[in-house]
Design a protein around this nucleic acid. Sequence first.
DNA 1: TGTATGACCCTAA
DNA 2: ATTAGGGCCATAC
Length: 108
Amino acid sequence: MDDELHERIRAVITDVPVGTVATYGDIAALSGAPSPRMVGRVLAEDGHDLPWHRILRANGTPAPHLAHEQLARLRTEGVLADEQRVNLRKYRWQAATDDTGDGPEGLF
DNA sequence: TGTATGACCCTAA
DNA sequence: ATTAGGGCCATAC
């Protein structure tokens, strides 16, 4: 039964903090889903009570039909986005990353 | 049993 | 930036 998986995916999505976003791939990995497609399916079927607006695609763009709604909701939560894309660099939810932040990364 | 579809992801041209 | 192709997993017909 993938009911357990179904619930686990929901749980991970619920765990995403306000003001942050996550990708389908991340949710899949954290929840142990075999594929990101499952995450999408769960959201489509039973994501009505979940913060689905915090879930974006790997490149930072939301799903085509919900794009407008998502960006609007995210903006309400404090996540500023371009007309099309969200800065994952800044808003991506990094679950318990051990990154001390002292790395010489030149990203900005 | 096989094909088609979907709130996906990655690589290449 | 955009299109195309392959891989991915579960459902529906």
